[in-house]
């Protein structure tokens, strides 16, 4: 598989949210607006690329029995770095995402890619895989955030479309579950139509 197709597969064929259904907590918890979804997606992508590269370069030295704790510590180190960078440069986003930034450590996507891909492939290929899956995750979070923001607040990326109140339920907890459910249905329909 070429490096380019490693990137594109993460967006459609192996989309972490709609196909693999991994990392549901940040997907539902942070997507109150398109901007928050994008921020969370990009933060996860950075961690994913860095941890994939680090793990694929040290995987051969790590004994198989203790590999999971080792992977988790490597991932936690990168999450801490991302956390500090965000706190320094995008403090507003850091405040809104709050608890969900340290929780990237336990995002099943990151550990899943480490175990399934990075431990068996070269550093370059692992970096591209991380980039592809990360992009797919960021795209789906942005779409989910976009829909919730549009119906919930009648705005797009923070720009108000009309001077009226939206349907608040879309921004609150129930909206997250329901919008994600319906988006999944649309995604499945589109996928069966294409193939």
């Amino acid at each position: 598989m070429s490096n380019l197709s490693l990137i594109t597969k993460g967006i459609i064929k192996e989309n972490p949210t709609f196909v693999l259904m991994l990392g549901m907590c940040p997907t539902l918890g942070t997507t109150t607006s398109a901007m928050n979804g994008l921020g969370m997606g990009l933060a996860t992508m950075v961690v994913l690329v860095l941890s994939n590269m680090a793990i694929s370069s040290v995987a051969s030295f790590i004994p198989a029995k203790v590999r999971i704790p080792c992977y988790i510590v490597i991932i936690a180190a990168f999450v801490t770095i991302v956390q500090f960078v965000m706190q320094a440069y995008v403090p507003a986003l850091y405040e809104t995402l709050g608890l969900f930034i340290p929780l990237i450590v336990v995002n099943c996507i990151v550990l899943g890619r480490a175990e399934a891909f990075a431990s068996k492939n070269s550093v370059i290929r692992s970096a591209f895989d991380g980039l592809g899956i990360g992009l797919g995750f960021a795209c789906s979070l942005t779409v989910l955030g976009f829909v919730r923001e549009l119906f919930g607040g009648l705005s797009v990326f923070g720009h108000k479309l009309a001077d009226a109140d939206g349907m608040l339920a879309f921004v609150l907890a129930p909206g997250a579950f329901i919008v994600l459910g319906y988006l999944m249905v649309l995604f499945n329909k589109a996928k069966t139509k294409i193939s």
Binding site: P174, F177, I178, G181, Y182, V185, N188
Partner: peptide, 10 residues
Amino acid sequence: IPIALVTAGI
């Protein structure tokens, strides 16, 4: 999963 998500929403 989709119907489960909608149910969870309700």
